[in-house]
Amino acid sequence: MTTRRFWVFLEQELGHVHPVSWELLGVARVLASQVAEEAAAAGDEVVVEGVLLGHQVRAIAEMAIGYGADRVYLMDDPVLEHYRNCPFYMGIEAIATKYEPEVFLIGATTLGRDLAGAIATSLGTGLTADCTKLEMGDVKGASQKLLLATRPAFGGNIMATIVCRRHRPQMSSVRPRVFPAPAYDPEARGEIVEESLDVTEEGARACILEFIHAKEDTVDIEYSDVIVSGGRGLGGPDGFALIKELADAMGGVVGSSRPCVDAGWISYAHQVGQSGKTVRPKVYVAAGISGALQHKVGMQNSDFIIAINNDPNAPIFEVADVGIIGDLYEVIPAMIKEIKARKEAQA
């Protein structure tokens, strides 16, 4: 009997968990269930396990069990208090070498991307970045199901499915919000296994002298329920004032398509799309956005999409639940008025 381990890196900074960690536990559970039958026939065990590094973060390991981890490997050490590439990748390399996971998922955040490439290289295995679909499937010539990792290529124009045949673990990075978070189960039971780090402060080879917290423009569009995005159809940077007004009325945040960011109309933090953020809000408004594939791949999982565009043939209408053909400078002010009126009627 062997144990087939589906691993998730549990990302945290200063004790704050990045929600992508829970999203990935949800995906890992689905992947594990896809091999359940095959494993049962072979007498193998299938487990979902989290990997957590940090200092005084045991509470996160306990939460991870509620989100579906059967077991969490916890490496708790003062050297790991702040994320640094060397001690983190070396610590994970050691535990991965010890337990030999079959699949290893990491969030495609700035931290996760810094880490994933280092781990994959140190383990000498394959890594597929920014996957939008993951599945355990049959591959010709393979004795077991393999991870089929699908990612957009060439600006989202093509979807490529990548497999890693012989090397383990099969690694993938996944952006936040590509998959939904699973429900938290306070009754769930699991095990926390402590591991020790074999890297000293000297071996960390980096010293963080200072943290600078940005004053302006720290918009967090990834986890907002409402996003109002503007595109080239705004005609200029001033158009974002109207977008902001609608976003404020709806209690949401401002997003943007890539051309506006490239033109300097608004900062990169607002960019939605393959080269920006992936989002899945409850309501997404796309105003003056034509709907290039690279934008659509970043927002098409939103629950409800409203597109406003002058051009009846704009591709954005293909993904919109409601498409309003018209001048955004006429439609949006009317929409703001309507929202305010409805809000007052309720109050």
Binding site: G126, T161, Q300, P312, A320, I324
Partner: peptide
């Protein structure tokens, strides 16, 4: 190279939504 491209395809087409023209039917 441990990874290989197993399949290539165009992204699935989403179900088109419903459109309404503010110009023709009014805002």
């Amino acid at each position: 190279s441990p990874t290989i491209v197993y399949q290539m395809g165009t992204p699935p087409l989403p179900e088109p939504g419903e459109k309404i023209s503010a110009r023709e039917e009014g805002i």
